[in-house]
Design a protein around this nucleic acid. Structure first.
Length: 194
DNA sequence: CGCTTTTGACCAGCGC
DNA sequence: GCGCTGGTCAAAAGCG
């Protein structure tokens, strides 16, 4: 991976107020959707359309009622079921799940964490392969699925499962830098990056 | 040499 | 019970 060369101070979805713009270059933010697939399987769909590339979406926008967009069809209802005996316990403990769909030229967005690919599968209703990643940090069992939208290959659907029990390597990296920056200036600086 | 990626096999859940 | 499907494992290959 390329953390050292591209340490993005970005996407860490920790169900708290620390949500930061997840994306860097090579992405079109004009149509970005979030799906809150929280434990319990209510599959609440939250759609957030970002009108400006510099917009920051706060985590509060994830907690609304279900949206009605048909674009959620690629996210199977089975998302809410935990399977796999070997890891189901972990999954329940860190059952938070969030997915988003964004137009992107690249398949895998650098969210600042270090991921290790452990599987690739072709899935039904999608000619594209789905990739499976695990957080490679020790003791962290967060998983991520990445697939191209079958309806429109210009879109990438990324699903995060679980919550990191550590900070993003890039987050640490940037925290060090922030110490030497005026905080307001830093916020402005990070906004301008996108 | 250590880590990551690839990829086929295997396993479990679900629907019929 | 069987087949389909999605998710994970693990050995081998690749890479820096």
């Amino acid at each position: 991976m390329n953390i050292s060369q591209n340490p993005s101070p970005n996407f860490t979805y920790f169900s708290d107020e620390n949500y930061i713009n997840p994306f860097m270059d090579n992405n079109d933010f004009s149509n970005l959707m979030f799906f809150d697939l929280d434990e319990g399987g209510n599959n609440g769909l939250i759609e957030e359309e970002i009108s400006s590339p510099t917009s920051i979406v706060s985590s509060e926008t994830f907690t609304g009622e279900s949206g009605g967009s048909g674009s959620a069809t690629t996210l199977s209802k089975k998302e809410s079921t935990n399977r796999g005996s070997k890891e189901s316990g972990q999954t329940k403990e860190t059952g938070h799940r969030v997915a988003f769909r964004t137009r992107s030229k690249i398949d895998v967005m650098d969210d600042g964490f270090k991921w290790r690919k452990y599987g690739k599968k072709s899935v039904k209703n999608n000619i594209n392969k789905r990739n499976y990643y695990k957080c490679s940090s020790e003791g962290c069992s967060v998983k991520k699925r990445v697939e191209r939208d079958g309806d429109d290959a210009a879109y990438v659907i990324t699903t995060y499962e679980g919550v990191h029990n550590h900070e993003s390597p890039s987050h640490v990296y940037y925290n060090d830098m922030v110490l030497s920056y005026d905080h307001d200036n830093w916020n402005q600086h990070s906004l301008l990056r996108s």
